[in-house]
Design a protein around this nucleic acid. Structure first.
Lengths: 138, 138
DNA sequence: GTACGTGCAAATGATTTGCGTTAAG
DNA sequence: CTTAACGCAAATCATTTGCACGTAC
């Protein structure tokens, strides 16, 4: 009757949603939408890519996963603990890098920033991975 | 005869290219492709959006500008000095934040990373800008 | 039984590409 | 004059949406 019970929406734990979350939690990296789609297809052969898109958006909104800031295609991760990223400028590969001291240092810097209420921080390191370095040097 | 003179390609300093670079250097922020397109149209009314795309890619390849890592649409900046970004989680607004001490601290951390030759680093701060905070609190 | 979620296909939006023409060097 | 770059339109790729049907609760 009130027509305002949007927030009372029931969340349904469907197979598709659960497999996508499971895949992300077990995947060691930062998969794209296509990676996730290919990864869950073995379990759910009839799954549609739209379902993968919708669920990744849904899970990110519910903060069960995070979308990674990247150029080009979207990438996701289930690691919710603050950490940093090492990004290869050649192949785009992303590796996690944990450093509590860097996080603390950054948060301390953040506390001095005016006009913004900072919630979190992370650092990107850009360089060349061993594989790409080998290629360049011949 | 050798068919290998690809690197000898002549770079042409066209009006379009120069206006796009000028716009980025004078723009205080992190414009999208559309922002750049709208911004240079007053000077070059017949410019095509494909030209804007092609030149932004070109300028980024030549390292005269940088593409910013963001979700969704591409953003660019002409500020090549290492700096950090404050990103509003609500409206997506990005502000530059300079902190040499943070850069140095991060580079020092970077020097300990194995298996990657780190070239540069930057830190993102996520939070809510004053405008969005006001909206949320009513 | 009642939504919410799914699969599919179509729509949208961002970006790239092909091609005939223009202009920088 | 040579060829990179332009403008335009078509093509491609990523992502979202509408809708009829299915299924979690």
């Amino acid at each position: 009757m009130d027509g305002l019970n949007t927030s009372a929406k029931t969340i349904k734990y469907t197979n598709q949603r659960m497999e996508i979350l499971k895949f992300l939690r077990e995947f060691n990296g930062h998969p794209t939408v296509d990676d996730v789609y290919e990864g869950v297809k073995c379990k759910l052969s009839r799954i549609s890519k739209a379902t993968v898109y919708n669920n990744l958006r849904f899970l990110a909104e519910k903060e069960l996963i995070k979308e990674v800031n990247t150029k080009g295609v979207s990438r996701f991760e289930a690691n919710l603990v603050t950490h940093h990223h090492i990004i290869c400028l050649e192949c785009g590969d992303i590796k996690d890098y944990e450093s509590e001291e860097l996080t603390e240092y950054s948060l301390n810097v953040a506390s001095k920033i005016d006009g913004f209420k900072i919630e979190s921080t992370d650092t990107n390191f850009y360089g060349y991975c061993n594989k790409c370095r080998r290629k360049q040097n011949g």
